[in-house]
């Protein structure tokens, strides 16, 4: 089965004009990115601010096209102008600021915006909107003004707007960065549901380490390059390396790491509270066994 997202030696340079220097400066935002995402996977991308995550995300939706290398979405080269709308339909995108991506003045009209642009027939738009709103649990809010919703609800509407376009994959660029903990939980649940129940490929960019624990695969970016790759467990067992890239680990993982360093027998990359407690109890009882 071909990968849904595939990048080979992807790079993006841009020219920066500054007041101080006469000659324009060439800046490379990302370079040498090789990426291959299986259909139905949940992928997380970590990296500090300015590491190039958003630039990479915009390539998946053809908001940017590579200056070197190639990006394919479902086998389509994103740099082909004639395929632009197809690429954008296949790879939907959700952004950070919930206010700045809702176009409609009523919730259901906003969700219908994408299908309208795709030229979907009126009756089909309605069924798509109903379906998308119920998948994100916002059907009861269809007649509301987006301005009256909470941050988490707005983000769910934005996700519904993408779902209504029937995409193969959804790229979410720090969708929870501006939300409170409850909003974050709501949005994450919706994303996981879409991935598990609907089989939508998800690519989640985030700063919250707790959000990537459920990912199938994690990539870490630093200074425009992919520097780490693996399962959450593999990534989070490398606490020191992550710190080098200005990232942290979930508190549970950190505690387990500290305990292990102090000599407690624990596995690498403990991810959840349950895992830590289960792993600690045999360590506690091991004295008994030896006796």
């Amino acid at each position: 089965m071909p990968s849904i997202i595939k990048a080979v030696k992807l790079g993006f340079d841009y020219v920066k004009y500054s007041e101080e220097s006469e000659t324009p400066e060439h800046v490379s935002a990302i370079r040498g990115i090789d990426l291959s995402v299986k259909r139905g996977d949940f992928i997380a991308i970590l990296g500090h601010n300015g590491s190039g995550k958003s630039t990479l995300a915009k390539h998946i939706n053809a908001l940017l096209v590579p200056t070197s290398g190639t990006m394919w979405i479902d086998g389509i080269d994103t740099s082909k102008v004639e395929e632009l709308w197809k690429v954008r339909q296949k790879a939907g995108m959700v952004f950070q600021n919930p206010d700045n991506q809702i176009i409609g003045t009523v919730v259901d009209e906003d969700v219908g915006f994408g299908p309208e642009n795709l030229g979907v027939a009126t009756e089909d738009i309605w069924s798509r909107v109903d379906d998308a709103l119920s998948k994100v649990g916002m059907l009861g809010f269809r007649d509301r003004s987006p301005n009256k919703l909470s941050g988490g609800q707005k983000q769910r509407v934005a996700i519904a707007g993408v779902v209504a376009m029937h995409p193969d994959c959804i790229v979410l660029d720090e969708p929870t960065a501006m939300l409170d903990p409850n909003g974050r939980r709501e949005v994450l649940e919706v994303i996981r549901d879409l991935n598990e129940k609907e089989g939508v490929t998800v690519l989640l960019i985030t700063h919250y380490m707790e959000e990537v624990v459920f990912a199938d695969h994690v990539y870490v970016m630093d200074q425009g390059e992919l520097v780490m790759e693996g399962t959450p467990r593999e990534i989070f067992s490398q606490v020191e390396t992550l710190k080098k890239y200005k990232l942290t680990v979930p508190q549970v993982t950190e505690l387990a790491y500290e305990l292990k360093a102090a000599g407690v027998k624990l596995p690498d990359g403990v991810l959840t509270r349950q895992e830590l407690v289960d792993a600690l109890m045999p360590a506690a009882d091991s004295g008994k066994v030896e006796a």
Binding site: N61, L63, W85, R88, Q89, G92, M93, F95, I103, D108, E109, G112, F113, G114, P115, E116, N117, L118, G119, V120, A121, T122, I125, W126, V129, G161, V162, M165
Partner: peptide, 14 residues
């Protein structure tokens, strides 16, 4: 743009 907006041509209405 990410949601395929490209003006009024070929656009349907909800």
């Amino acid at each position: 743009e990410a949601r395929c907006y490209h003006g009024g041509d070929g656009r349907t209405q909800m």
